[in-house]
Nucleic acid binder design. Structure first.
Length: 585
DNA sequence: GCCGTTTTCGGCCCGACTGTTTTCAGTCG
């Protein structure tokens, strides 16, 4: 990819981010996330996110040809591209500062409530809210009561919104990281740029974003960084390290190191701390030292290895350890005995088994486009899994499924190399039953069953309902097991070992949902199954639009972080083996 | 704010559910 298209892409990302921020602040202004103006800007951001060509090069007229972009949005984009800011956005930012906006991230608090809290109780941030909670002032407000106080207090605790525990969901950090990396790669004299830290581990939430740059001169790198539009405030400005904050309060550290030390620095800043300690111990055993500059001889200080991570692992007698595994949970010992798991690569994925189209109420690409895109990506098999009828808004009736089946028959002729399964994403009810009836379900090729409601049952009840779905003969896989939305809503609690046992016994697999909001099953739960071969997984995108097939890489990252072995992931299997497996189940 | 078998403004996938109230805000996909 050339420099020009790097810039084009990062500028589109930047514009999407700006429009989303505008929509976010409009929610407070309008008093509802469902307000039509809010939804209009959100829809415009969707359209811009799916745009390939650089929006910055388009005229207002060209922008308005995009579905969902009209005069006002096009005008704001041009204003941003031409002047670097949007006057109305700046007004909203002044009226609703980041610390106040953060309050809306707490489940149970919407725009109306936070504005009410500010008007009546002068609550401007999470700290103020906690004081109001302690003083039991919130129950005095109209529409709120003692239960609301309890719920809010619990939500604050669980989301880690306060103090130094503050972490940002990966879905917000990753685009920012990509934007910063692309921008710094374009600076003359820069040899390499990588993000490190917990983002490189593919953690669900990120504390600070660490970006490492290999360059002989730091000054131009730092200048380029602090002048990025994403940078709202510069905290520290030094020769090798600059720390800045985004408008949302995410801290970004940029470090510049000599190209010859890049591997040692990347290893050091990627961590984890526990992983580094184990590596340092191995170095000491050999009479060496390991720090952020090099693996070096303890006496002479002569470097042993420093340029690449691989060279350092090799010198320490280890196989290369992928960043996702570096949590100090046995990976160093495994690498010593050459016992690291054989992990999934994106190229291993042969099929996608959770796909929606506009037949589902929330699908955004047509069935024809979804199938053509899957075929174009070289997939061998897919399952079309529209929402089941129990999801009132988005689900399909039996009749609609029959009609869609006719469309699929036509598409199978059009794409003979792609095996198309017809299925459904069923809803697991509070009691573990699912949509439709047994006879109807038997006619479907592949069923995902997912929790979409009743998030507040006890762990015992959640485990029971999920296990009942696992043993339903029509159910092939449990979709996004916890139903969490990272940083927004905690998932359901289940006895994960009991779930693994049930899956093993029933021959039902577990989905690893690739969407960055979900990454579900969470990696730390996946890791609990790392020593068992009787549980089968499926990595799926849950695509609602043609662009989302690309999300598969995030699901693969999450599977790697969870030590899931390639041989246990059914959609890495060749078509023949996969189809035989479904048939014999 | 966007859209339109568009011309000047009404409709925008929407229904069930919870916690709070007695009409509404927020949550789900």
């Amino acid at each position: 990819m050339g420099l020009a298209s790097f810039w084009a892409m990062s500028t589109n990302r930047e514009i999407v981010r700006i429009i989303r921020e505008y929509a976010e602040l409009l929610k407070l202004e309008e008093g509802s996330p469902q307000a039509f103006r809010v939804r209009a800007y959100d829809k415009a951001a969707d359209a811009l996110g799916e745009l390939i060509e650089p929006a910055a090069d388009m005229t207002s007229g060209e922008l308005q040809k995009l579905d969902g972009v009209g005069r006002a949005t096009a005008g704001k984009i041009r204003e941003y591209v031409d002047t670097g800011s949007i006057a109305k956005l700046d007004d909203l930012r002044r009226k609703y500062p980041p610390a106040f906006v953060e309050l809306t991230r707490i489940p149970g608090l919407g725009p109306k409530t936070v504005v009410l809290l500010r008007d009546k109780l002068n609550v401007n941030n999470v700290e103020d809210l906690k004081e109001a909670l302690a003083a039991e002032q919130i129950r005095e407000l109209p529409g709120l009561g003692a239960k609301s106080e309890e719920k809010i207090a619990k939500a604050i605790d669980r989301l880690g919104l306060h103090g130094k525990d503050r972490r940002t969901p990966i879905i917000r950090v990753l685009p920012i990281a990509q934007e910063v990396v692309a921008a710094l790669e374009a600076v003359p004299g820069v040899k390499r740029v990588e993000y490190a830290g917990s983002l490189r581990h593919f953690a669900d939430t990120i504390g600070d974003l660490d970006v490492l740059v290999a360059a002989s001169r730091a000054q131009s790198v730092m200048e380029a960084f602090v002048s990025l539009p994403i940078v709202a405030e510069v905290e520290v400005r030094g020769d090798t390290k600059t720390t800045a904050l985004t408008a949302e309060g995410l801290q970004i550290d940029v470090r510049v190191v000599a190209p010859g030390e890049f591997g040692a620095a990347l290893l050091y800043f990627t961590g984890s701390k526990a992983h580094n300690i184990e590596l340092r111990q191995l170095a000491i055993n050999r009479g060496w030292t390991l720090n952020e500059y090099a693996l070096a001889d303890g006496e002479s200080g002569e470097p042993v290895a420093a340029r690449t991570e691989n060279a350092i692992y090799k010198a320490l007698g280890l196989k290369y350890i992928p960043p996702e595994l570096r949590e100090g949970v046995g990976e160093v010992v495994a690498a010593t005995s050459r016992d690291l798991p054989k992990l999934v690569e994106v190229e291993d994925i042969k099929g996608d088994l959770h796909v929606h189209s506009t037949w589902s109420g929330d699908g955004r690409s047509s069935l024809d486009d979804m199938v053509a895109t899957a075929a174009g990506r070289g997939l061998e098999y897919i399952a079309i899994t529209e929402h089941g009828e129990d999801l009132t808004i988005n689900g399909l009736s039996r009749e609609q499924i029959r009609e869609e089946g006719l469309e699929l028959a036509r598409l199978r002729e059009e794409f003979p190399d792609l095996t198309i399964l017809q299925g459904s994403e069923l809803n697991i009810g509070a009691d573990g039953t699912v949509d439709y009836d047994d006879e109807f379900l038997a006619g479907l090729d592949w069923c995902v069953a997912s929790v979409h409601s009743h998030f507040d049952l006890s762990q015992a009840d959640q485990t029971e309902r999920v296990i009942r779905a696992i043993f339903n003969p029509a159910v092939n896989v449990i979709g996004h097991l916890t139903g969490r939305k990272i940083g927004i809503r905690p998932g359901i609690e289940v006895d994960i070992d009991a779930v693994f046992d049930a899956c093993a016994e029933a021959g039902t697999s577990l989905e690893i949902n690739s969407h960055l909001h979900r990454l579900d099953v969470p990696a730390d739960w996946l890791r609990r199954a790392r020593d068992r071969d009787d549980v089968t997984f499926v990595i799926s995108t849950d695509s609602h639009h043609v662009t989302q097939f690309d999300n598969i890489k995030w699901g693969v990252h999450n599977s790697r972080r969870g030590w899931v072995q390639k041989k246990n992931v059914a959609n890495t299997w060749p078509k023949e083996k996969f189809l035989k497996w479904i048939k014999e189940r």
